[in-house]
Amino acid sequence: MGVVIRLGRISYVNMAPVFHRLMHEVEEISGVPTELNRMLLAGEIDIAPISSIEYARNATRLRLLPRLCVSSEGAVDSIQLVTRMPLGRVRSVAVTPESATSVVLTRVLIPRAELLPLEAAADADAKLLIGDAALKSAFEDPTPHYDLGRLWLERTGLPMVFAVWAAPEPVVDGLLQLQEALVASVRLARSEPERLAYEASERYGYPPGFLARYFEKLRYSFGPRERAGFYTFLEMARDVGELAQVPELRFLQDEEVPVA
């Protein structure tokens, strides 16, 4: 009997398709993205979706799963800039402490804006929300919301990769088998969208129809377009001073035909 893999799970509803019917024995450890980033780099978990920018900052210590990411091509719904001002006039943004990638993406898209802690939202021109807080706000708050996935697509014409699945070196055994189980779970979730939406609704509290539309916007396959978008984001992060250099992507195994 092998060692049970410690698998990180982002605590947001965006993970529902990946864990829909995961047929693999794991120890599931849940947290917001920045918590998982820290735990992964500390060796407290064996594999997890990690913020794209944090992977890049620590790439020499990590290996990537070649078939999985968390991305969107256009609007993603769960990363929202909320402001009553036109975007061109925004000079300060109160940002969530939960996601490193979204904060850097804000800097890339609105380079002149000062980034403030979220508790300073009352004094900022805009606030950045991610995950379930962003979904809830878009659902309930009539203030204009700017979807960072859509803004990114308008700027680059490419998907935005928010998270990649990474493992600290030395990697534990069995990760490629786990990857196959995760991909199979996504495939099954895609094949039964109503069941996915209803089960996620029971767990997270959003209406099933709302979740069904949200899941349609998410992508989990780390294909050629996603990799191009990932590199583009890292280059732009470097250009605004958020990354020293763009790393080489080092995969657990070189598979060029992702399916998810």
Score class of each variant (00 low, 15 high):
250 R>Q: 10
201 S>G: 02
241 G>N: 12
216 E>C: 13
214 Y>W: 08
231 Y>Q: 15
221 S>G: 14
211 L>F: 01
204 Y>T: 01
220 Y>A: 03
225 R>G: 06
222 F>W: 07
206 Y>H: 02
205 G>N: 02
200 A>L: 04
238 R>W: 12
236 M>W: 13
235 E>F: 11
200 A>H: 02
230 F>K: 12
204 Y>N: 00
214 Y>S: 03
246 V>Q: 07
208 P>H: 02
242 E>H: 08
205 G>S: 04
211 L>C: 03
251 F>M: 09
202 E>M: 14
233 F>L: 04
207 P>K: 07
225 R>M: 08
200 A>V: 01
237 A>Y: 02
220 Y>W: 05
245 Q>T: 15
248 E>H: 14
250 R>D: 11
230 F>N: 07
245 Q>A: 15
231 Y>L: 15
240 V>F: 06
238 R>T: 10
218 L>D: 05
214 Y>K: 04
230 F>T: 09
220 Y>D: 03
244 A>F: 15
229 G>W: 00
221 S>C: 12
212 A>D: 11
241 G>Y: 08
232 T>N: 09
215 F>S: 07
236 M>P: 13
214 Y>D: 04
203 R>A: 08
239 D>I: 13
238 R>C: 12
240 V>L: 09
244 A>G: 15
246 V>G: 03
233 F>V: 00
207 P>C: 07
236 M>S: 12
223 G>H: 02
220 Y>K: 04
214 Y>Q: 05
249 L>M: 13
218 L>W: 10
206 Y>K: 13
